[in-house]
Amino acid sequence: SKGEELFTGVVPILVELDGDVNGHKFSVSGEGEGDATYGKLTLKFICTTGKLPVPWPTLVTTLSYGVQCFSRYPDHMKQHDFFKSAMPEGYVQERTIFFKDDGNYKTRAEVKFEGDTLVNRIELKGIDFKEDGNILGHKLEYNYNSHNVYIMADKQKNGIKVNFKIRHNIEDGSVQLADHYQQNTPIGDGPVLLPDNHYLSTQSALSKDPNEKRDHMVLLEFVTAAGITHGMDELYK
């Protein structure tokens, strides 16, 4: 796709999030870079409003799984890469995230190029959380598991539907599940690639910047598309 050509090198990323969870309002600002050749993201996020009212790991899918245009699609799968094909005009990404036995996040993001920078601007609203639950009670460990993110075409809306389940580790050794339902639709009216069913395999590492006084998260992530085999004719070339 034409959009794919915008991702040949390292691309700067800007992320802006405004959130409200159970009436606790907050903002997060992030910057870093993405390299789609390797499916690599390096980002640093800062809570610009003081202390973040929710655990950082609960925002990873909104912040970095928010820029799935940096996923590495192998050559034989490039015609299934909706995310890059929607660029530079970008796409709207909407999600509902259900935390098992707790509340939910609803998010709406616009992901697009502004100049040479890929920008992810998000509004997040969280409701029905227990004040002493795993999320508002800050009981999650500061780490992140690997996940597969399942993608299918949504021809009606000229976009994709995505769903997956995140496993958050809790300090007591148990797990907090979070079910994600995602819809992506193009902002522009140019042609986009509608994929066959496949998935993104994601690995994320969270860390801290020892010199950063503000509440923050440093993230390194690798994302690769998989799940579609080479056609038989490919094998015999």
Rank of each mutant, 00 (worst) to 15 (best):
S201I: 07
F45I: 03
M232I: 13
S64T: 04
N169G: 03
V92G: 03
N143A: 11
D101E: 09
T96I: 14
C69R: 00
D132V: 06
N148H: 10
Y38C: 14
G137E: 07
G66C: 00
F45C: 09
K130T: 07
D128Y: 12
E234A: 07
G50R: 01
G19D: 00
S174C: 13
D189G: 11
Y181S: 05
Y144D: 04
I122L: 05
P186T: 13
F113L: 09
E221A: 01
F98S: 14
N211S: 12
D75N: 09
K208S: 09
K161T: 14
I127L: 15
I13L: 09
V21G: 00
F164V: 09
S174R: 13
V10G: 05
H180Y: 04
Q156R: 11
I166F: 02
G190V: 15
D102G: 07
D101V: 01
D179G: 06
E33G: 05
D209G: 01
K25G: 02
N148D: 13
L124Q: 00
G39S: 02
G30V: 00
S207R: 09
Y142S: 06
F98I: 07
D35H: 12
N143S: 11
N197Y: 04
D215E: 08
Y73C: 01
V28A: 01
D172H: 08
S29A: 13
G188S: 11
E114A: 05
M77I: 07
R72L: 15
G231D: 15
N148T: 10
F113S: 01
V67A: 10
K2R: 13
K106Q: 13
V92L: 06
D128N: 09
N22S: 05
S29C: 15
H230N: 13
V60E: 00
I127V: 12
K208I: 08
I127S: 12
V92D: 03
P210H: 05
K130R: 12
K112T: 11
R167H: 15
K100E: 10
N169I: 12
M87K: 00
F7C: 10
A36P: 10
D35N: 08
G137R: 10
T62S: 15
E110V: 14
E234K: 07
K155Q: 09
Q79L: 13
N134T: 04
L177I: 15
N145Y: 10
S207C: 14
N134I: 05
K84M: 02
E89A: 07
H76R: 09
V192A: 11
N143G: 15
Q79H: 12
L136M: 15
D179V: 04
Y144F: 12
R167G: 15
L41R: 03
I127N: 14
Q93R: 00
L235R: 11
D18N: 14
S27I: 05
K112N: 10
F7Y: 05
D101N: 06
K125Q: 14
M152K: 08
P88L: 14
N104Y: 15
F129I: 07
K78R: 12
G126C: 04
P186S: 13
I160S: 02
F129S: 00
G227W: 10
D75E: 11
L17P: 00
T117I: 07
S146G: 12
D75Y: 08
H180P: 01
D132G: 10
V111A: 04
L63V: 09
D18E: 15
K106R: 09
E94Q: 13
T37A: 11
V15D: 00
D215G: 01
L6Q: 06
P88H: 09
D20G: 01
L59H: 00
A178P: 01
R95P: 00
V175A: 12
Q68P: 03
L220Q: 13
K51Q: 03
T62I: 02
Y144L: 15
K161Q: 06
F82Y: 08
L219Q: 01
T224A: 11
E16G: 03
G23A: 02
K112E: 03
D154N: 12
T117K: 08
G90S: 00
R95C: 01
Y181F: 12
F164L: 06
H80Q: 10
F70S: 03
S174N: 06
L177V: 15
T224N: 08
E31D: 10
S27G: 08
T48I: 04
V162M: 08
V149G: 03
S29F: 10
H80R: 06
F98L: 12
Q182R: 00
A226T: 13
M217V: 03
R121C: 04
N184D: 07
M87A: 06
Y236H: 12
E212D: 05
D116G: 13
N134D: 10
F164I: 06
K161N: 13
V21A: 02
H24L: 09
D35E: 09
P12A: 02
I97T: 02
Y105N: 01
R72C: 14
N22K: 03
G227R: 14
N120Y: 02
G103S: 04
E31A: 06
Y142D: 04
I46V: 14
I170L: 15
L59P: 00
